[in-house]
């Protein structure tokens, strides 16, 4: 009940206040990112694309409604879109597992990404999931393997990949469609290794301390920009205006990335991925990585 009250307060704040999230608490962002009625991947795809065709299935087991994929036309350019789907109402929420994908979802994403690579289409991913589905069937069909394979293939996919965290970026389930050349977050989106509730119950040993956990985890767009984990923050205004801002970012980035030699594109992507992490006593790593690239080329 307290949560509901808080949610309502948050809605009020969203309606009243301006674009910047600075000053709002991390917990506010968590609540906003989960808000029922917050625009999802499909809403943005429809607003961004002149036309869009959804493609279903992983060709292995089934079609996961919690993952949407397909091809859209944006200003004369064909783009493969992949996104988590939570559903717009309760019935759809249940159908889509609240945006938690089974292995089939990740394997559909992988199939469509490889298809995009084959036909020289860039890929745009919209991330909005609490995490991968923690179910019996998901484990039986290898949810860990499915995510791992995506991380591997997306990291060297020879076509530009842009990722947008539009709501909840939850753990490995979010990362499974979150490896690309550029990573953006909507202003009130969050991205974390575990939910604040999970962090609170495991590390703080008190599930009621989710609010404190959210603060300590540094999971808002502003924190992640500071950490250089994301490239930029996209301000949230009306749904149409936000969609327009995303569209402009896509067009601007693709104008640059689509003209880069593919080998260079992959090198920059790997360099960026390789550089994240803080250790002491580490050694120089870019030179060895370059040598591996040279070796790779000599093997071709």
């Amino acid at each position: 009940m307290a949560d509901l009250k808080q949610s309502l307060d948050t809605i009020e704040t969203v309606v009243k206040t301006s674009y910047t999230c600075e000053g709002t608490s991390s917990w506010d962002c968590v609540l906003r990112s989960r808000q029922q009625g917050r625009p999802g991947a499909k809403t943005f795809i429809d607003l961004i694309c002149d036309s869009f065709m959804e493609l279903h299935g992983d060709r292995l087991y089934g079609d996961d409604p919690a993952m949407i994929g397909g091809i859209g036309m944006v200003g004369g350019r064909a783009i493969t879109f992949i996104g988590n789907r939570k559903g717009a109402n309760f019935k759809e929420n249940v159908l889509c597992n609240y945006g938690m994908s089974n292995p089939e979802g990740y394997r559909k994403a992988l199939r469509l990404a490889k298809q995009a690579e084959k036909f020289g289409r860039p890929v745009v991913c919209f991330i909005d999931t609490p995490g991968a589905y923690p179910g019996l069937g998901a484990e039986e069909r290898g949810i860990g393997q499915a995510i791992a394979e995506n991380l591997k293939v997306f990291s060297t996919l020879k076509t530009p990949v842009l990722c947008f965290i539009i709501g909840e970026g939850g753990s490995g389930g979010a990362l499974g469609i979150g490896v690309g050349d550029k990573l953006y977050m909507l202003e009130h989106a969050v991205y974390s290794v575990i939910t604040p509730e999970g962090f609170a119950s495991i590390l703080l040993r008190d599930p009621s301390k989710a609010k404190e956990a959210a603060e300590a985890m540094k999971m808002t767009s502003h924190h992640l920009k500071e950490f250089s984990v994301i490239h930029d923050i996209i301000p949230e205004r009306s749904t149409e205006q936000t969609a327009q801002a995303i569209k402009e970012t896509i067009i601007r980035d693709l104008d640059v990335l689509c003209n880069k030699p593919l080998d260079n594109l992959v090198r920059y992507r790997l360099k960026k991925i390789r550089g994240i992490g803080e250790v002491s006593g580490g050694k120089e790593w870019w030179q060895p990585l370059l040598e591996v690239f040279t070796k790779t080329e000599s093997l071709r």
């Binding site: 791992a148 991380l151 293939v153 290794v193 999971m219 390789r274 994240i276 591996v292």
Partner: peptide
């Protein structure tokens, strides 16, 4: 993942998987 390192621990998944991709490319 080491939750105490927040988003940095999540990113290690991408990092190690991308290294595995390089092993694949170099056979």
């Amino acid at each position: 993942a080491r939750m105490q390192e927040g988003i940095f621990s999540l990113m290690q998944m991408a990092k190690t998987a991308s290294a595995a991709a390089l092993l694949e490319e170099t056979k």
